[in-house]
Amino acid sequence: TELRLDINGREIKVDGADKETLKELLKLAEKNNDEKAIRIIRHLLER
C-alpha cells in the first residue's frame, strides 16, 4: 500500500521516503499542527 499525506495542500508520498525526508515532512506537519500527519511520520521514523 502507498501512504500519502496531504501536507500544506500538497499530497506527499511518505512510505519509502528516507529519514531526512521524513524529518523535513515532520517539521512541515508540526508547523501546520497536523496531528494525524505528525503521528504517522513519527511512527515511520521509529521503524
Rank of each mutant, 00 (worst) to 15 (best):
L28M: 11
N8D: 12
L45E: 03
E11T: 13
D15P: 04
K13S: 10
L5Q: 09
R39F: 07
L26W: 02
D6E: 15
E20Q: 08
K27A: 11
E20I: 07
R4A: 15
E20Y: 04
K36N: 14
L28R: 03
R47F: 08
L25G: 02
L45C: 03
K36L: 12
R4I: 15
R47M: 13
A29Q: 01
L25Q: 01
G9N: 03
L22Y: 02
N32W: 14
L28A: 05
V14C: 02
R42P: 00
K31A: 12
N33A: 08
T21M: 13
K31Y: 11
I41E: 00
K23G: 08
L25K: 00
L5Y: 02
K23I: 07
K36G: 08
E30H: 07
E46D: 10
K27Y: 08
L22I: 05
R47P: 14
I40D: 04
L25N: 01
E11W: 07
I38D: 02
K23N: 10
A29M: 05
D15R: 04
L3W: 00
I40E: 04
A17E: 14
L44W: 15
D15E: 05
K23C: 06
D34Y: 05
L45R: 01
D18I: 05
I7K: 00
K19V: 11
R39V: 12
K31S: 13
E2Y: 03
A37H: 03
N32Q: 09
G16C: 09
E2H: 08
R47C: 09
K19E: 08
E11R: 04
L44G: 04
I40H: 03
A17Y: 08
E20S: 08
R47S: 13
L45Q: 05
I38F: 02
L44T: 07
K13Q: 11
D6P: 02
R47E: 13
K27I: 10
G9V: 01
K36M: 10
E24F: 09
E30S: 09
A17R: 12
V14I: 07
E30M: 08
K27R: 10
L28H: 07
E46F: 05
I40Q: 06
R39Y: 07
L44I: 12
G9Y: 01
L45I: 10
T21R: 12
L25R: 00
R10A: 13
K13R: 12
E11P: 05
G16F: 13
A17C: 08
L5R: 02
I12R: 02
L45D: 02
I40Y: 03
R10W: 07
E20F: 04
T1H: 14
G9R: 00
E35M: 08
L26Q: 04
D15Y: 02
L3S: 15
L44A: 12
I38K: 05
D6C: 15
T21P: 02
R10C: 13
E2K: 03
T21C: 14
L25W: 07
I40T: 10
T1W: 06
K13E: 08
R4V: 15
E24V: 09
A17T: 13
N32R: 03
R42M: 09
R47T: 12
L22E: 00
N32E: 14
A29H: 01
R39I: 13
K31V: 13
D34L: 09
E20T: 08
E30R: 06
D6Y: 08
L45A: 03
I40N: 03
